[in-house]
């Protein structure tokens, strides 16, 4: 007994050491495996961090300085730029216009896109051709789309839209100058509905037709089927469309530049800040504005990402 007890007492530290060694070996293996897995990711991650994050660090620094084209030395001014900004009527106007453009164009494109998808999701002659016609607005350059609408649709003198309106006996209006905000939104909806249509169409085509048939057999009407079966199935697709649409539409610049040329009635934040950089040369102030927009975007992005992580829940 005592012998054995002695032996085991002697052996214990040794065995313990071996276990530790083994554990360390396993750990280093795991670490190596971890790095093996991480390495393919690193180039993309580093590139993204350097190109997309570093400029914002600079912007943050500029926003606390009186940096402008004419000043000799850059000096720190604390929160002065930020204080100025909240009293700035034009900044608040631009923020409000940004919200209107984003919300209205995302919602309208979703509604129109869903309608288009429902129409296209049935058999008829030339289905593929009509789908091709409808996605084309999404493919063309925003600059081109804006010019077409401004000069050839909206124009009071030779625009098709006014020609049609006058055909019905009404008086034409120069849409782009009289209603710059809505003109921009119309063109955005025209370009983005096809994109929403593509997403919703993918959702409709993934539907389980046997469920629909069963509901039909049970005597459900079309509206009931849409509301209780189709819509819940489309939800993740509609959310995806909202998210992607919002990412791009909140940053709209080209349409505003071409259609309104910077009318104060349709100047969103990106346009406003870009203009301040080009014309105002007040880089400190411009950076403060940009930082506020960044903070607002981060808040919105968090909401958006929460939506997105709901999409991933099934994983």
């Amino acid at each position: 007994m005592t012998d054995i007890a002695q032996e085991s007492a002697e052996a214990k530290p040794e065995r313990g050491q071996a276990a530790l060694d083994r554990a360390a070996a396993v750990k280093s293996l795991q670490r190596r495996e971890g790095w093996k897995r991480r390495i393919p990711l690193l180039p993309a991650l580093l590139f993204t961090i350097i190109v997309t994050q570093v400029p914002f660090v600079f912007a943050l620094y500029y926003s606390f300085t009186d940096f402008n084209l004419f000043g000799e030395a850059r000096k720190l001014v604390g929160f002065e730029n930020y204080g100025d900004l909240f009293g700035d009527m034009f900044f608040r106007d631009a923020a409000w216009i940004s919200i209107q453009i984003t919300v209205l164009s995302v919602l309208l494109s979703l509604v129109v896109g869903t309608g288009l998808a429902m129409l296209l999701d049935r058999k008829f002659i030339g289905q593929g051709l009509v789908r091709t016609l409808i996605i084309t607005p999404f493919l063309i350059m925003p600059v081109v789309a804006s010019f077409v609408w401004k000069n050839q649709m909206f124009s009071a003198t030779f625009g098709v839209l006014n020609w049609v309106i006058e055909l019905f006996g009404f008086e034409g209006t120069p849409f782009a100058t009289r209603y710059p905000l809505y003109s921009v939104i119309i063109v955005l909806v025209w370009q983005w509905s096809p994109f929403m249509m593509l997403i919703v169409l993918a959702g409709l085509q993934g539907q389980d037709t046997s469920v629909l048939e069963a509901a039909k057999v049970d005597g459900a009407n079309n509206w009931g089927i849409f509301r209780q079966i189709t819509f819940p199935q489309l939800r993740p697709f509609l959310e995806l469309g909202t998210l992607l649409g919002a990412i791009y539409l909140v940053q709209v610049y080209d349409h505003i530049e071409v259609i309104t040329g910077g009318s104060p009635l349709a100047k969103n934040l990106p346009f406003f800040i870009a203009q301040r950089t080009q014309i105002g040369f007040d880089f400190g102030r411009g950076s403060a504005e940009a930082i506020i927009v960044v903070i607002a975007s981060i808040i919105l992005a968090n909401i958006g990402l929460r939506v997105l992580s709901n999409l991933f829940e099934g994983d």
């Binding site: 500029y62 990412i247 870009a274 960044v294 992580s309």
Partner: peptide, 19 residues
């Protein structure tokens, strides 16, 4: 990591313009 990539799309590019 995936969310980090997507979140960079939310940053308004105009904020990076001056830098």
């Amino acid at each position: 990591v995936l969310f980090f990539f997507i979140s960079t799309k939310f940053l308004p590019i105009v904020g990076a313009l001056m830098p």
